[in-house]
């Protein structure tokens, strides 16, 4: 299997706080991998380092064999990494199609073009991407009035604009209704299969994680405590203790109550 993303000994320290500490893992081509863990475990910090929003204190991140550690987000994106955010970051003052067109304009390096009208550029490509996420019928609506689930799908379409080899999705289903969650994750799984790309995502909803992830990593207090298949992780004693819970933790207290 080809390794797309290789993370070695990644660390981030804020003063004395070790938010992420010596994290090492790989993501293979065509793999849908989840990163889970309690709030404050360092998932977001980890993600922000992978995408270049934060500079790591130590360690190395390489993409398809190339060292991308500490590069700014836009350089990492140009090397084929798409990203969706926990809190959606779309352009509120544009239409749905224009949001995707903007990413395509950037991908084709036409940002500083001053002759053409932007809303006419790469419209067909944008509609094709919107078709994939099932948003083509809303292409000309204002982004500001979209429902939350639709915004998430729009973000996914934007993330596909540069033909990525790797997608990073930070809590893709947060704030969605259960049915919508299932739909979005199924969509993601289809995209992974059809385009043979890799996805690394963080998630709180264990149903989503266990149903869709090929492999699961568990982060706790900045350290990776498990990395394996759903069954392996589910049966890992340490994971049960710190995150999933096994019902034994409060045995002592139960006696009091």
């Amino acid at each position: 299997m080809t390794v797309v993303l290789k993370v070695e000994n990644l660390s981030k320290h804020f003063g004395g706080l070790r938010a992420v500490n010596g994290v090492t893992f790989d993501v293979a081509r065509g793999e849908l991998k989840a990163l889970i863990g309690p709030n404050g475990a360092g998932k977001s910090t980890c993600f922000n380092m992978l995408m270049g929003q934060l500079k790591p204190s130590a360690g190395r991140v390489s993409l398809n064999g190339e060292d991308i550690t500490g590069k700014p987000p836009r350089d990492i994106w140009r090397r084929g990494v798409g990203r969706t955010f926990q809190i959606t970051g779309t352009y509120q003052s544009m239409t749905v199609a224009e949001n995707v067109q903007m990413a395509l304009i950037s991908h084709h390096r036409k940002i500083f073009a001053i002759r053409p009208f932007a809303h006419k550029l790469y419209r067909d490509e944008a509609l094709a991407l919107l078709e994939i996420v099932g948003m083509a019928d809303q292409a000309d609506r204002a982004c500001a009035i979209l429902a939350y689930g639709d915004l998430k799908r729009l973000e996914l379409a934007i993330a596909l604009a540069n033909n990525p080899t790797l997608l990073l999705m930070d809590e893709p289903t947060a704030g969605m209704a259960p049915k919508e969650r299932e739909r979005l994750m199924q969509l993601t799984a289809d995209i992974v299969r059809d385009r043979n790309i890799s996805v690394l995502f963080t998630e709180h909803d264990m149903d989503v994680v266990f149903a869709h992830a090929h492999h699961i990593m568990v982060l706790n207090r900045g350290e990776l405590i498990a990395d394996g298949t759903a069954a392996e992780v589910r049966n890992n004693a340490q994971v049960q203790e710190v995150y999933l819970g096994g019902g034994t933790l409060y045995a002592k207290e139960d006696a009091h109550a």
């Binding site: 309690p38 710190v242 207290e253």
Partner: peptide, 9 residues
């Protein structure tokens, strides 16, 4: 939420 098990206890 997000607190070590010992502290939760």
């Amino acid at each position: 939420e997000g607190i070590a098990p010992v502290i939760v206890e």
